[in-house]
């Protein structure tokens, strides 16, 4: 999915200071085309501030933000035309109909036709209610109208700040599938922010972890679920755990062996060692009922990165 072309967006040493406090400290990262990129961090970590700087609502104190090579500060109009965004809540003009809200934003970008408006309305499934005033909309409908206005001008970069706020599980699922579709078939790049790990896992390709305005790390999502190195944890189900424990403790290349409950033995090793380990266990004629890979919980990965500080 990753492309080798130049990144859609790149941040270079982006810093934001307000008064004496540093809100955002030296952020540098790139997002390539077609990726769903997540900002993950507790409330107050600087996710929204970063997004506001990317879309030009806030200025950077230092560093630069380039969108398709255009500097958001000095070439605002050229840079922002590639961006569609919802910053925080999808606030719309409540006294206008959903349709007129879209007309309003369509007029601000050259080349958005009436047909395009209808197309986007259909896309977010608001056809039946689009001529109602927004004040009559539910939160989910507003969220969908927000997505519609962000997609209106066919942006290359879609930025959604806490997009799942106020959505029910079905709505979240729908949004997720939709984003997948956009990146896969539309070539769009998506940046989402969230303070919920579980959502990020389901949506993102890569995640940037922010904490206290600093970038802790940027990792592919697999890192959190599969661990950093080669070694993974496996779970062996047996009727003779003591026997297995004893056999394993005599073998090489095993990082850790743990006795679990109800005949479970957990061992951490490289994937390549598994067949040999099993073959050796067979020689001791132990009865093995199953072997499975233990997926690390997302929280484990996160805690490892942030040095044990809990999220949320």
């Amino acid at each position: 999915m990753m492309s080798t072309s130049e990144p859609i967006i790149s941040l270079r040493n982006v810093t934001k200071r307000i008064g004496r406090s540093t809100i955002i400290d030296d952020l540098t990262f790139d997002v390539p085309q077609g990726e769903i990129f997540g900002f993950l961090g507790p409330n107050g970590a600087g996710k929204t501030t970063t997004i506001r700087m990317i879309v030009g609502l806030m200025t950077t104190t230092n560093g630069q933000i380039l969108i398709k090579g255009k500097n958001i500060k000095t070439e605002f109009e050229q840079a922002i035309q590639h961006v569609g965004a919802i910053v925080e809540n999808p606030e719309m003009y409540k006294y206008l109909t959903g349709y007129l809200n879209l007309v309003h934003y369509a007029r601000m970008v050259p080349g958005v036709t009436k047909e395009r408006i209808d197309e986007v309305v259909k896309l977010v499934k608001l056809e039946s209610r689009i001529h109602d005033k927004v004040k009559k909309y539910s939160l989910g409908m507003r969220q969908r109208l927000g997505v519609a206005q962000a997609l209106l001008h066919q942006p290359s970069l879609l930025i959604l700040d806490e997009p799942t706020n106020g959505l029910d599980p079905a709505g979240i699922r729908e949004l997720r599938d939709y984003l997948r579709q956009l990146t896969r078939f539309g070539g769009i790049t998506v940046i989402v922010s969230s303070h919920l790990l579980s959502e990020m896992e389901l949506m993102c390709d890569r995640v940037a972890i922010l904490q206290g305005g600093k970038l802790v790390d940027v990792k592919p999502i697999q890192y959190f679920t599969q661990g950093s190195g080669q070694a993974q944890t496996y779970r062996i189900e047996t009727q003779q755990p003591e026997l297995v424990m004893a056999a394993l403790s005599r073998m090489d290349g095993i990082e850790e062996v743990k006795l679990g409950v109800e005949g479970i033995v957990e061992l951490t090793t490289e994937r390549e060692r598994i067949p040999e380990i099993l073959a050796e266990l067979m020689q001791h004629s132990v009865r093995i009922y199953g072997v499975e890979t233990v997926r690390r919980s997302l929280e484990d990965g996160f805690l490892e990165l942030t040095g044990g500080k809990q999220i949320v």
Binding site: L57, E77, Q81, A85, I86, E88, E91, M92, K94
Partner: peptide, 14 residues
């Protein structure tokens, strides 16, 4: 007050 300023200012119009 309504927050719509954010949506208004992220368009290609300075």
């Amino acid at each position: 007050a309504s927050g719509t300023i954010k949506q208004l200012l992220i368009r290609p119009a300075n």
